[in-house]
């Protein structure tokens, strides 16, 4: 199956079975993930929560196809992504996955609309057409009036909204976010998450967020707690002891 032929339907957005990941540290091999079995459904806003070093960043990297597991299978919308060739996997990400990073990682020398248009341009769309679509997405996120500004002319919250626009502009079926509110104050973080929930979550799209920001836990449809490379909690709320 090619990277873009993933099928939709009642199947989970992400299905992992027995995912383990080891890292070498000198002579030692450290197992960060211990055989994770997980199904993430479309239309869900899922939080992956855990202490530093619990393996949540490794898990999300494996789920979105940018870090190979040591063992186990990962299916994204029915596609066994690690059986794809390198080129097909890169293309799969480009077509199906949107990324939101903690530090936004916007290109400083191009304006907000062009930053948001990057996935479309990478897909080969004409730059001006891609920009128009990016401006429409920025409009949904209430910052169309900032479209012509460079990232350093925007506040942190605005930059994160541009990053969200970049993650959604090509209408991916999976959106992964790494600590999207970590660099924002409480008010901005809340506003960004409200927008992400409103614009990002859709019936055929799954959004997974790695976070430890307890101010936004109430927005989650599902919370997974990761401890020492194992999922210790799976529910709609945080467990009492966290």
């Amino acid at each position: 199956m090619s990277a873009t032929e993933a099928t939709t339907g009642s199947q989970p957005a992400i299905r992992t079975r027995g995912v383990t990941r080891d890292f070498k540290a000198g002579q030692q091999t450290i197992r960060v993930l211990h055989g994770i079995d997980l199904d993430v459904c479309p239309g869900e806003l899922t939080y992956l929560v855990g202490e530093s070093g619990s393996g949540k960043t490794t898990m999300i990297s494996i789920m979105c196809g940018i870090l190979w597991p040591t063992d186990g299978d990962v299916e994204v919308f029915g596609t066994d992504i690690y059986s794809l060739s390198d080129t097909d996997l890169v293309n799969f990400r480009l077509q199906n996955i949107g990324f939101i990073f903690q530090q936004y990682n916007l290109i400083p020398s191009i304006d907000a609309a062009s930053n948001a248009a990057v996935p479309l341009i990478a897909q080969g769309m004409d730059r001006l057409e891609a920009r128009d679509r990016a401006v429409a997405m920025l409009d949904k996120l209430n910052i169309a009036d900032q479209a012509d500004k460079l990232p350093n002319q925007l506040s942190g919250g605005q930059q994160q909204r541009v990053a969200i626009a970049r993650a959604l502009v090509h209408e991916p079926r999976l959106v992964v976010c790494d600590e999207p509110t970590a660099a924002l104050d409480a008010k901005s973080g809340r506003r960004v998450m409200d927008l992400l929930r409103e614009v990002g979550v859709a019936e055929d799209r799954s959004v997974i967020i790695v976070t430890h920001d307890n101010r936004i836990f109430d927005l989650a449809d599902r919370i997974l707690v990761l401890e020492d490379g194992r999922i210790t909690h799976d529910g709609t709320d945080m467990p009492e002891d966290h």
Binding site: C64, I66, T87, V90, N91, F92, R93, L94, Q95, I97, F99, F101, Q103, N105, L106, I107, P108, V118, P119, A122, R166
Partner: peptide, 17 residues
């Protein structure tokens, strides 16, 4: 710009590109 290049690679820009 390594972070930006890294982000581009994650998004799906090939090494060739």
């Amino acid at each position: 710009n390594i972070k930006q290049f890294g982000a581009l690679k994650a998004i799906g820009v090939t090494n060739g590109k």
